[in-house]
Design a protein around this nucleic acid. Structure first.
Lengths: 139, 139
DNA sequence: GTAACTGCAAAATATTTGCATCCTT
DNA sequence: AAGGATGCAAATATTTTGCAGTTAC
């Protein structure tokens, strides 16, 4: 795993540091989305809150992770499938948020549908968030 | 307009107060979405920040307005078309956020598409947010 | 009159910024 | 060695809570 983490960082011309390795590792292991707060918890009290903010911001800028809109003032972040190019996200999949356990998943296999919109409006990006109950929480 | 505002409040068994009338009025006039901050600005320094929080929360609970997920830690709120029943939103339309001017619109006429999802997952709600440039900002 | 709503003060959280120090290259 | 990254302190900003005074019904 270390190798993979290192690769991703190097490929994005970021220096390989402890915090970045750790945070990126979390995402690679998890294969879901994390909010800022989740990261602080999962990482133990190892590094500074500020470092988390800065690291997440850097990763988003580099296109290593992307943001998932939410309705509760806690932006979630998830790995981009194939490193999006810098500044150009192709976040063309659906996100699922479990209302029970709060887990956020990227449904890579569910494509975002075509949307027809009013004349005169141009579209840059479409976000689709599905809320429901995930497999694990289904009784 | 006063009458309409009053009606909505009464229909939801809320007492008709200055703040509620004013905030609800903003939404009725605007026909778009507002974030907490927008409301404070638009309303002048007339009422307390806390009142805005509480009023928005009340309106959401009653199904008078609904939240629109965003990626920037600033939840937007918009009127529900036909008062959703308490606790049961039928927020079945697409939202548009203009990347230029920041305006958020409810595209009532654009239906949320069917989404097929993995077996074992159930769906409660689907949010679709389209980002792009609105008519007014188009050059 | 009573229950509900508001405003103020203050606490609790969350986010941002500056700067000195440390680490990566 | 040089530039970038981190950690700490502190400044801001945001959200929540308690309570006393006020308003709607």
């Amino acid at each position: 795993m270390t190798t993979r983490v290192d690769d991703i960082l190097r490929r994005n011309s970021l220096s390989v540091t402890e915090s970045r390795k750790k945070i990126l590792g979390l995402f690679l292991n998890l294969h879901g989305a994390l909010a800022h707060g989740d990261i602080e918890k999962k990482a133990g009290e190892k590094f500074d809150r500020v470092t988390v903010y800065r690291t997440l911001q850097t990763f988003v800028e580099k296109g290593i992770i992307h943001t998932i809109p939410t309705t509760d003032n806690s932006i979630r972040y998830a790995l981009c499938k194939n490193n999006c190019s810098e500044g150009h996200h192709h976040d063309d999949h659906v996100h699922f948020i479990c209302l029970q356990c709060g887990a956020t998943l990227c449904l890579e296999d569910v494509a975002v549908p075509e949307i027809k919109i009013r004349k005169g409006f141009s579209i840059n990006e479409i976000e689709v968030v599905v809320k429901g109950i995930c497999l694990d929480c289904q009784q």
